Simulated assay, not measured.
Amino acid sequence: MTEQPHAPFGTFESVSAALAVADLLADPVADALKNWDDREAAESVLYVDTDPGKADTAVFCETYGAPLEASANCVVVAAKRGGETALAACLALATTRVDVNKAVRKHLEARKASFASMDAAVAETGMEYGGITPIGLPAGWPLLIDAAVAEAPYVLIGSGRRRGKLILPGRALAQLPGAEVLPGLAG
């Protein structure tokens, strides 16, 4: 008999191994977990079932007793250079803000960087707005992770849908395809 997993923080009625409930995840997220080369990292991911109406970070943390400093937000950035626009994702703790104008722009060697539109972020990721997560991003996208996220014992991130969240060790996020850990990405 397998033991029921427990979340390292928060008060959630339902906690499952994410791989066991892949049908509850956005398709790109489920596919990425199933095909993640780092099996230990994939198996460390927990899914907590939550109210989609309470998906926004501050409301979520208050409702479920999750510490804001253990929550991370994934934002999609559009970087422009030489008439071309490339998309990238950035992951930072919810207590900080991604430095798009300096850190991201400089790292991506872009002339200009800004947050991608909601429509572009949703269309390109195949995920719901408010649930976009670094797991399952399009192939070839850079994933810039603030060092504080990678150093966190556990991090709460989106599941690709507004319903439910994922919890995993910060170090596992650094193992995702295209991931680059950057000190000072957020402040």
Rank of each mutant, 00 (worst) to 15 (best):
A55C: 10
E43G: 09
S14D: 14
K54R: 15
E43S: 13
S114P: 03
S14H: 14
D38V: 07
Y129G: 08
L68M: 15
A94C: 06
T2F: 06
G178Q: 08
A7M: 07
Y47M: 09
F60W: 05
V76M: 10
A116H: 12
N73D: 09
G136K: 05
G187P: 13
L173T: 03
A110N: 07
L108C: 11
A110Q: 05
F9N: 01
A94K: 02
T63Y: 04
A116S: 07
E151K: 09
V100L: 08
L93N: 13
P177S: 09
A26N: 09
A92F: 07
K112L: 09
K112C: 08
E84G: 00
V77N: 08
Y129H: 14
L185M: 08
A55D: 11
Y154G: 04
G184V: 00
A110Y: 06
Y47N: 10
N35Y: 10
L185A: 05
G83N: 12
L25E: 06
S71Y: 03
P183D: 14
A92K: 04
A89S: 13
N35R: 14
R97W: 04
L33N: 08
D119P: 00
P183E: 14
W141N: 12
E128N: 13
K102Y: 09
P183A: 15
G178I: 00
S71W: 01
A123C: 06
R163C: 10
A17D: 15
E69L: 03
G10T: 00
E109G: 05
L156S: 02
L25H: 11
L156A: 08
K34S: 15
M1Y: 07
A116N: 10
E124S: 12
E13G: 15
V76R: 08
C90M: 11
G170V: 03
A18Q: 11
R163F: 07
G187K: 14
A70T: 11
P138M: 11
A103K: 04
A172N: 12
F12C: 01
K54V: 11
A174R: 09
V98N: 00
A72Y: 02
A89V: 03
A110T: 07
D119N: 12
A86T: 15
V76S: 06
K54Y: 02
T96L: 12
A66L: 07
K54A: 14
Y154I: 00
A103G: 06
I145T: 01
P67N: 14
G158N: 00
G65Y: 01
Y47W: 14
D56K: 06
K54D: 09
Y64D: 00
F9Q: 01
F9A: 06
A79G: 15
G187D: 15
A72H: 02
L91C: 10
L137E: 12
E151T: 03
E62G: 10
P5M: 11
Y129A: 14
A123Y: 02
M127D: 13
A152I: 01
